[in-house]
Amino acid sequence: MTAGVRLLRSTRGAAAVEMALVTPLLLIIMMGSFELGNYFMNEHKLVKAVRDGARFAGRQAFGSYTCPSTIDNTVVTNTKNVVMTGVLSGGSNRIVNWNASSITLSLNCFTATGGQDMLGIYRNSTGASVGAPVVTVSATVRYTPVLASFGFRGVGFNLNARQQAAVMGL
């Protein structure tokens, strides 16, 4: 048998060649799994943070809200701190590259329909019905990929969350 025929029939390096062909695909799947897991973890953190902020804002005094759209600055500042860090002051950001300007609070005041009167706590100082205040907390955060050092920049990926809570007072 000649050397060329023996070389063609040899299977000694087949496993190494197969591994060399499959390794890039396995690495792509593995790195993609890491990136997807990180994306969902950050999204979960953002949704939880916005939910905590809405719950906090809803438990503030009725006097902090003036229908139809004014929220006391202290409530806005404290709510933004709770959303970003989980505490009223200090603490570190829950998500990397997050700033307070990406968090917004808005107020809507809902009134009864069908000729019903909203008696009780939803009246102003003159006794007129002003509606039930509902605060909405929204946030947008630019997604920071884990694989940025490998060239995946994630440009244009944003995480968004929004939550509402009825103002119940202290």
Rank of each mutant, 00 (worst) to 15 (best):
V17R: 11
A148D: 12
I95E: 07
T126M: 07
L46T: 03
N158C: 03
V134F: 08
N78P: 00
T136S: 10
V155H: 05
A54V: 04
R142K: 15
M30H: 03
D52S: 14
P68K: 02
G127M: 09
A148E: 08
S129G: 10
G131E: 09
V155P: 03
A166N: 14
A132F: 09
E35Q: 08
E43A: 12
V146L: 15
P24W: 04
L107P: 05
L107N: 05
L26V: 15
T79L: 15
M41N: 13
R51A: 12
Q116D: 10
Q163I: 02
L27N: 02
V17F: 08
S129A: 08
V22R: 10
S10V: 08
L27W: 02
A49N: 01
H44C: 08
V130N: 01
T79M: 13
S102P: 03
A100V: 13
A165Q: 13
S129H: 04
L21P: 00
L36D: 07
A49V: 07
N93L: 11
L7F: 09
N78A: 04
A20N: 12
E43K: 15
N38F: 13
V141I: 14
I103C: 03
L105E: 00
R55E: 06
N81R: 13
C67E: 01
Q163T: 05
L8S: 03
G90V: 05
I71A: 04
Y122C: 07
G32T: 01
G131H: 13
F157Q: 08
I28A: 12
G58P: 10
E43M: 13
S69F: 07
K80N: 00
A139P: 08
A161R: 06
G169M: 13
N38D: 09
G63R: 04
A3R: 15
T77D: 10
M30V: 14
E35D: 14
N124P: 05
Q116E: 06
G115H: 15
S125K: 06
T140F: 08
G151W: 13
L159N: 04
L21N: 02
P68G: 02
E35I: 12
V47G: 00
